[in-house]
Measured scan of single mutants.
Amino acid sequence: TTIHVGDLTLKYDNPKKAYEIAKKLAKKYNLTVTIKNGKITVT
């Protein structure tokens, strides 16, 4: 599972963990989490 945050690309083997991290990042920086085709993007 890949999380895209701006220019950063973070890879995680565990999709659930990746989603949790994405949610935390989104909350911290007041951003939105988008999931599309298995890719998690924080914008």
Rank of each mutant, 00 (worst) to 15 (best):
I40R: 01
Y29N: 03
K24D: 06
K16F: 11
K16M: 11
K16L: 12
G38P: 01
T1A: 12
P15V: 13
L31W: 05
T2I: 13
K23F: 11
D7F: 10
K27Q: 10
V33M: 10
V42C: 03
V5G: 02
T34Q: 12
G6D: 04
L8Q: 03
L8D: 03
A26M: 04
T2R: 07
T1S: 11
G38N: 12
I35Q: 05
E20A: 12
N30D: 09
T9Y: 09
T2E: 11
T43K: 10
K39G: 09
I3G: 01
T41I: 14
T9V: 15
A22Y: 03
G38M: 05
T1M: 13
T32W: 04
Y12Q: 03
V5H: 05
E20R: 09
D7V: 07
G38S: 10
K24L: 12
H4M: 13
P15C: 11
A22I: 07
D13G: 05
K27P: 01
I3D: 02
N14L: 04
G6A: 04
N14T: 13
K23A: 11
K17R: 11
T43C: 07
K28T: 06
K36V: 14
H4G: 05
K17A: 10
Y29K: 02
G6Q: 04
G38C: 01
N30K: 08
T1P: 05
K11N: 15
V33R: 00
N37D: 14
K24V: 09
L31E: 01
Y29D: 01
N30E: 06
K17V: 14
L25M: 08
K27G: 06
K17G: 04
Y19P: 00
K16E: 15
T9K: 13
T34W: 04
I35W: 05
K24Q: 11
P15G: 07
L8G: 02
T2Y: 09
K27F: 07
V33D: 00
L31P: 00
Y29M: 04
N37A: 11
K17S: 07
T34P: 00
K17D: 13
N30L: 05
K27A: 12
I40P: 00
K28V: 08
V33F: 05
K24R: 12
T2K: 06
I35H: 05
I3V: 13
T34M: 11
V42R: 00
K23M: 15
I21T: 08
T32K: 10
L10D: 04
I21K: 04
V33I: 14
D13C: 13
K36H: 13
T41C: 07
L10H: 04
N37R: 07
D7H: 13
T34K: 10
G6H: 08
L10I: 13
D13M: 05
A26C: 02
I40G: 01
K39A: 14
K23C: 10
K16T: 12
T43M: 13
Y12F: 15
T43L: 12
P15I: 13
K23L: 15
L25F: 04
N37P: 11
V33Y: 02
L8M: 06
K23T: 13
N14H: 06
D7R: 12
A18M: 03
L25D: 00
T9G: 05
V33K: 00
V42P: 00
Y19V: 10
T32E: 09
N14A: 04
Y12C: 14
L25G: 00
L10A: 03
D13E: 08
I3M: 06
H4Y: 11
I21S: 05
T43A: 13
T43F: 11
L25A: 01
V5A: 02
V33H: 00
I21Q: 06
T34I: 15
I40D: 01
T41D: 06
